[in-house]
Nucleic acid binder design. Structure first.
Length: 149
DNA sequence: GCCAACGTTGGC
DNA sequence: GCCAACGTTGGC
């Protein structure tokens, strides 16, 4: 799961009560569907910091609550407000809750990933990939943890 | 800050 | 239902 650390960082997650937060603000159908249809309690998650000088995978988390409606879509004061949800009277968007596990001892930066036989082929490295939530294979997961040791 | 890539919107 | 215009994302 991708996040801009200026908005919500891995540290913010670890500083939240019980390290748990609702992943609010996803406004892309593909990403939403992945949360709604694919993400289950206990699923392991990598947290990636984007839009910084050297973007990186910085830590791990776990799904602790399956998809439920994202109320920020109905709040006109929220940056994630969604007019269409308001009109429909229900949020079109959903979110899962995740619990931070631990920071990687060494963040796995794009620079590192580029030169890695497995990591260079991860979805997040593909050109034009803008999805904020992407599947990670078992192989990739293990390679990330190893590179981040 | 630039700009390529992509998603969404809305006129027709 | 097409597609041009527009807005956003995110690496660089």
């Amino acid at each position: 799961m991708k996040t801009e650390p200026d908005t919500f960082s891995f540290d913010d997650l670890m500083n939240a009560p019980q390290h748990i937060t609702s992943w609010e603000g996803v406004r892309n159908y593909q990403a939403r569907n992945m949360m709604r249809d694919a993400m289950k309690i206990g699923d392991q998650v990598l947290i990636y910091h984007s839009r910084i000088p050297d973007p990186a995978i910085v830590g791990t988390a776990e799904v602790v609550h399956e998809a439920h409606p994202d109320p920020t879509a109905l709040d006109p004061k929220s940056p994630y407000f969604d007019e269409k949800s308001k009109k429909a009277g229900a949020s079109r968007w959903c979110m899962v809750d995740i619990q931070g596990q631990k920071a990687l001892p060494h963040p796995v930066t794009r620079t590192i990933m580029k030169d890695h036989p497995i990591l260079s082929r991860m979805k997040v490295m593909q050109k034009g990939m803008r999805l904020s939530i992407m599947p990670v294979s078992q192989n990739e997961w293990e390679a990330v943890l190893k590179a981040g040791k």
